[in-house]
Structures are given as C-alpha cells and as structure tokens.
C-alpha cells in the first residue's frame, strides 16, 4: 500500500512539468551565484579551502541546488493549510498512520525530483564548471543511502514545522524561521566547514539540518574519509526526528479542534 502512495506522489509531481522547469531554472541561477562566490573565495586562498578544492566546491554547490528539491526543503505549506482549514480530519480518519502515509507520498515526490530537478542543475553545472566525479565506486551507493536518509530527516523536520498549525493555526512565523535556519544550517548557502571550529563540527553533527544537505554533499565529493560516520549520524537523526514527529502528531491529534462549517 505504501508503494501505491509513493507512486501517487510521483505521478502528482510529474503532472506539473512547467513548474518543474521553472523550479530547476531557479536552482540553476542560484547555482551560478553560489558557485562563483565560493570559487572566488577559493581563488583568494590559493585554490582550496576547508578541505574542498575547486571541482569539489563546484560539485558541492550544484549537487546541493539539485538536492534541495529532492528533499523539498522549503515545502512547508500544504499540510499546515489542511490543518488550518480542517481538511486534515479526512486524513486522520484513514486507517493509516498519518506520518507513514505522508512519508510514503514524499518518497514518491522525491523519486520524481531525482529524475528532474536533481539532474538538470548538475548537467547545467557540468557544462560550465569543472565538476568532481567520485573516485571510489562505493561512494555512489553511499551517496544514494545518504540522500534517502536526507529525505527522511527533512520530511520529519518539515512535518514538525507544519504541526505547529495544530496549536497556532497561522504558521507563517515558524515557516519563516524554518526557511531561514534550514538554508543556513544545512550547508546550502556555504559548506559549514567554512565556519570557524568548533562551531563547524558542532553544526555538522549536532543538528538534524546538516544531515539534509551538508552530509550527503560531503559524501558525494569525498571530502574526508568519514562517510560512514556521516551516514551513522544521519541515520541517528532520521530515527530521532521521525520518532519526534510521530510523538508530536499523536499529541496534536488529541488537541485538534475542527472548526465547523
């Protein structure tokens, strides 16, 4: 059944072809902006910075521009809106756990985005910049696992943000805070290792947000030989965040008051 839900998620996003193109073109513009900025910094420091050389930096940027659509980092509106309008009741009456249900749909969506919005920026980046191809064969499966974990962590975090609607109805505030923190702390704006130590280590391992982009990108560009450590940290955050999301969901269901009409 979860497979069917995932397939539905895939098909739903596959319908919006033009929106997909529009989104990818935006990712590509930002890819250029971030890539030029980071490469200029690398030039200033003699070609490499914080363990990234130029091709690694470029791959980090273009990979993260693609990954942000796969994990749908800023997609925090739909469920919150359903909670506000009361439509969520229909979801809760289904004989499926709502968190697993939404996660299955999200996997379908992510699958579609891998084929489109992940690939397009990487191709665009590869046309203009020198990208880094992983040297070790094992990196490819490790990266795939890492992206799956990133999707789970990001889904759970977004679910928590939207669950705020059960208590506050208007969740623009939490959404803005999330948009802000997730962009900065995930490594989307710049690799977190550019920050001074010990802040960098603290942020990379200490928040679930870094597991969404920083971790998979470090694995992809083989920045250091600690891919397995990163994966373990990601898995830990995935379990912790899904557990939190389910706990909050259960409390929210008890609290829910549907407004009539």
């Amino acid at each position: 059944m979860y497979l069917a839900l995932a397939r539905a998620g895939f098909r739903r996003y596959a319908t919006y072809r033009i929106a997909t193109l529009a989104g990818a073109s935006t990712n590509i513009t930002f890819g250029f902006l971030r890539c030029y900025a980071l490469l200029a910094v690398a030039t200033a420091t003699g070609g490499s910075i914080s363990g990234y050389d130029r091709p690694r930096l470029a791959t980090f940027v273009w990979g993260s521009q693609g990954a942000l659509a796969v994990i749908a980092i800023w997609d925090t509106y739909e469920q919150a809106e359903r909670i506000r309008t009361g439509d969520v009741v229909v979801d809760l009456q289904r004989p499926v756990d709502p968190v697993w249900h939404l996660l299955a749909v999200d996997f379908g969506r992510a699958g579609f985005q891998v084929l489109t919005r992940f690939t397009l920026p990487l191709v665009a980046g590869a046309l203009v910049f020198d990208l880094y191809a992983p040297r070790h064969l094992v990196t490819y499966p490790l990266f795939a696992v890492s992206m799956v974990l990133a999707v789970v962590v990001c889904f759970a975090c977004r679910h928590l943000v939207q669950c705020a609607a059960y208590w506050m109805l208007d969740v623009r505030g939490p959404q803005v805070l999330w948009a802000l923190l997730s962009g900065l702390l995930s490594g989307l704006y710049f690799p977190l290792w550019l920050l001074p130590e010990p802040l960098a280590t603290l942020l990379v391992y200490g928040t679930p947000i870094a597991s969404m982009i920083q971790a998979p990108m470090d694995i992809l560009v083989e920045r250091a030989d600690h891919a397995y450590v990163l994966l373990a940290v990601q898995a830990g955050w995935a379990v912790a965040m899904v557990a939190t999301a389910r706990g909050v969901q259960r409390r929210a269901e008890r609290k829910l008051v549907v407004q009539g009409g």
């Binding site: 900025a37 980071l38 200029a40 910094v41 690398a42 030039t43 200033a44 420091t45 910075i49 914080s50 802000l180 900065l184 704006y189 710049f190 550019l194 920050l195």
Partner: peptide
Amino acid sequence: VLDLSAVVVLFRAGGVVA
C-alpha cells in the same frame, strides 16, 4: 542578519576576495 552573515563568512574565509 543571516543574509549578510553569508557575506561575512565567505569573506572571512577568503581574506581579500576579488
């Protein structure tokens, strides 16, 4: 603050950029 902090982080890391 954070928008502008990206500028600070990049320029601190790079010293004199461009």
